[in-house]
Design a protein around this nucleic acid. Structure first.
Lengths: 232, 232
DNA sequence: CTCCAAAGGTATGTCTGCGAGCCATTGGCG
DNA sequence: CGCCAATGGCTCGCAGACATACCTTTGGAG
């Protein structure tokens, strides 16, 4: 019997209870900037359907976000639940192994995504989308940088055309962002990242898979060593 | 709001109910060969703890496996639930998009795993483990090939030292194996695969990440085009 | 030969989460 | 100005899953 593989297969079947998991998803959407401050979340009924949980559970999750001031709800037609400008909260301490694990998975997923995206023939909408996200990230302030950065990286994952790869990247980024939130974000890092983003997107749009992979790998190694330096 | 990214974030929070998910996990362990025919599953109490479900749920899952003749249970000390020799069941029809999605994710994960494993300094136990799995796969009969093949690929994922990457590979393989079970497995494919496995493992043991990635990519492309040919 | 630890088999009461329905509020449209 | 569609707010009963406890079987150790 393969002892090590069992750890993967016999891990817990549920990430948590439905409520906690729902909170986590909504937090992801907010922290990754998929729903930006001022924008509206899908309606409770729609979220319940899409997340596969009851509306009661969705409401409990939203209530807890309200209590932490992440969102505000308004009733009536054209009402809804709107995202506030939020202060990212810091994560609890992590083990070295966890960090290494998260970074390993991220590198595999994101370099693979960049290579795959570069190897596809992208539609004009996708090409435009990538350029827009790049522009957004490059003009972002320190406060909004993490969110804009995530949007760009998610856009790259989407450009692979694989929904499950996009989901995996989103989850992976969430894990890594928790770690990144605990360390300072400095202007020089930001400028450096922007230059790397530029290379990555250019390589993808030029249809150069190897260059895209290489550029993404360097980009990720930057933040990875930053993380290891600060947290270990 | 990023419409496409929402599809990933707002996907259902639970893969299914606890019972179905538990059945799925046990099936994975059996179909991937992590627990081989004749071997014993962990005890019900242990599975309940590790999977994070109640023993009642574990028992219901095991019962349904018994009814489908995948396992047999024996009472008493040194009893337990033992894996039978099973006939792989065929999967229901899939959409082309699903196939593409599964193959894209698999390629990203497994080429990344091969490269990462080759870039690490492996312990002697890990090196030996890889050689053993390679040997097992190369001497496998047609009937046991899929299982031995999966064991080898999982061993490569484990060699990255990343538990979450291993879990992702296991899940990905499960998806792809469902598809592979619907198409014939031929001797020539098998011989070809063995040669490729040899190259992959040699590259990993030699510490040559690029060669490992390259060899894995070619290996996966082989079955990928086979699949596309048969299923589309 | 006896004991007993460890495994599967069974039963019960509790609680979470779900479904479904209804209420309250709001702002645009006719 | 009144209607009404779409949204959040609320309640109640049911089904699934859980924790816990106890029973039954088995085979090795003493």
């Amino acid at each position: 019997m393969m002892e090590h593989a069992q750890e993967a297969l016999f891990r817990p079947v549920r990430a948590g209870n439905a409520f906690e998991e729902t909170v986590e998803r909504l937090m992801q959407a907010i922290r990754l900037g998929v729903v930006a401050p001022g924008e509206r979340l899908p309606s409770e009924r729609e979220l319940a359907t899409r997340l596969g949980v009851s509306r009661v559970t969705v409401r409990e999750a939203i209530r807890s976000l309200q209590e932490n001031n992440y969102v505000e709800s308004r009733r009536g037609r054209y009402g809804g639940t709107f995202v506030n400008d939020v202060i990212p909260k810091s994560a609890p301490g992590k083990e070295f192994g966890d960090i290494q694990d998260a970074l390993t998975l991220r590198k595999v997923l994101e370099t693979g995504a960049a290579e795959t995206a570069a190897g596809r023939s992208l539609g004009s909408a996708e090409r435009r989308g990538l350029r827009v996200r790049l522009e957004e990230a490059s003009t972002a302030t320190l406060a909004e940088y993490r969110r804009k950065d995530s949007r760009l990286h998610l856009a790259i994952a989407e450009a692979t055309g694989s929904a499950s790869l996009t989901a995996a990247v989103a989850e992976s980024r969430m894990r890594v962002n928790e770690l990144l939130d605990t360390i300072p974000l400095l202007e020089p890092n930001l400028a450096h990242s922007n230059a790397q983003h530029e290379r990555i997107i250019t390589s993808i749009l030029d249809g150069d898979p190897l260059a895209a992979r290489q550029a993404m790998a360097e980009h990720l190694d930057g933040t990875a060593s930053l993380l290891r330096g600060f947290l270990v």
